[in-house]
């Protein structure tokens, strides 16, 4: 007879299942990216996932743990997929492998593995690559709809050549809308939307990009519906981003971008639903997650507006990761039977 403590029953959810759901939910975004930028993103995702899992298995072997058991929680897979989605399409293979190595070894396993990493592993990998290889990391493919009539998206073979042999394919990269806004000198918002091909081809925030963001939004809503995470962090982040951008909005030449532009360009939705919601490195209580999300939203706008990195989701998230324990400290929930929460601070999310 078993003698275990209660409860004797358990919900069907397991960590591995949650992780697989996350991977599944990236599908709309992945599809949008593939449609917009070609096969590159898929290559990235595949390569990053495989290498991340290999690194994970190797480290677990080194640590003398059963590798298969730990691979089954799929956390390495998620890290790989997210990193792959964050990297520019058609970037060299070594960039992807280096990135996943940094993510898994440096950011995750060296801190103790699953559940112990203070920073989001995928974002650490991304930031290390961005700082170390700025040229490769800023070569974003241009979305299909802005390519000239004669050109179609990079083919499978060409893409592979570029990835593995480093043979560049000319004319396929372009500035992202965020870059355009950053490098804007003297043009009003309306002028920008008329002059930049990407923005011109799109409806709200640039061709391709808006659909990618909408794809990730859909995936995120699916995860919310599946109760994989709570709404607090993403909603707080999007609200904060929208509000701050609205606050600083002007349509003139010094414009920092409209709220809708910010919400639908760059890695906004990807970050909101797939990076912020990494539970390990975020704040824990619901109130804490509101603060955490809002902090990222504000940081994101500040960096997009005034820093040298046009899309700063990774930096914003890492900074907020730093702050998470501090946020936790001040946002303990009010426990049943207590007059007020311990060490509560004033609400500051709005």
């Amino acid at each position: 007879m078993l003698r275990v403590t209660s409860p004797h029953t358990h919900s069907a959810r397991s960590t591995g299942q949650l992780m697989r759901l996350v991977v599944f939910a990236t599908l709309p975004g992945v599809v949008a990216m593939t449609l917009a930028f070609g096969w590159g993103s898929l290559f990235n995702v595949a390569l990053a996932s495989v290498s991340a899992m290999v690194f994970e298995a190797a480290i677990m072997r080194l640590r003398g743990r059963p590798a298969l058991f730990y691979l089954r929680d799929c956390s390495a897979l998620v890290t790989g997929v997210l990193l792959g989605l964050a990297l520019p399409p058609y970037c060299p293979w070594w960039l992807v492998v280096t990135g996943s190595g940094v993510s898994i070894i440096l950011a995750k396993q060296l801190y103790g593995g699953m559940g112990y990493n203070p920073f989001n592993p995928a974002m650490v990998g991304y930031v290390v690559l961005l700082i170390s290889f700025p040229v490769e990391m800023t070569q974003w493919a241009a979305p299909a709809s802005v390519l000239p009539e004669s050109q179609s998206l990079v083919g499978l073979a060409e893409g592979l050549k570029q990835i593995f042999a480093g043979v560049p394919v000319d004319g396929y990269t372009g500035a992202t809308p965020l870059d355009v806004l950053k490098q804007n000198s003297g043009q009003t918002m309306a002028g920008l939307y008329n002059s930049d091909p990407t923005l011109q081809a799109g409806m709200l925030a640039g061709a391709g990009w808006e659909w990618v963001n909408i794809g990730f939004l859909l995936g995120g809503l699916f995860l919310l519906y599946q109760r994989v995470f709570t709404w607090h962090a993403p909603v707080a982040m999007l609200t904060a981003l929208g509000l701050t951008s609205a606050l600083f909005y002007s349509s003139g030449s010094d414009s920092l971008g409209s709220p809708i532009f910010h919400l639908l360009s760059g890695a906004t939705m990807f970050g909101a639903f797939f990076i912020l919601t990494d539970p390990v490195s975020s704040a824990v209580s619901t109130r804490g997650r509101l603060v955490y999300g809002a902090l990222i939203g504000i940081l994101l706008f500040v960096m997009r507006g005034w820093s040298n990195y046009p899309d700063a989701v990774a930096f914003a998230v890492l900074l907020a990761n730093f702050a998470a324990p501090f946020i936790d400290y001040y946002t303990l929930p009010r426990t049943y039977g207590h007059q007020k929460a311990r060490r509560a601070t004033e609400k500051e999310e709005h």
Partner: peptide, 14 residues
């Protein structure tokens, strides 16, 4: 009960 895995601080318990 299944073997316990690491806590990922998912917050479902909270």
């Amino acid at each position: 009960p299944q073997p316990a895995q690491a806590c990922i601080r998912c917050g479902l318990c909270a």
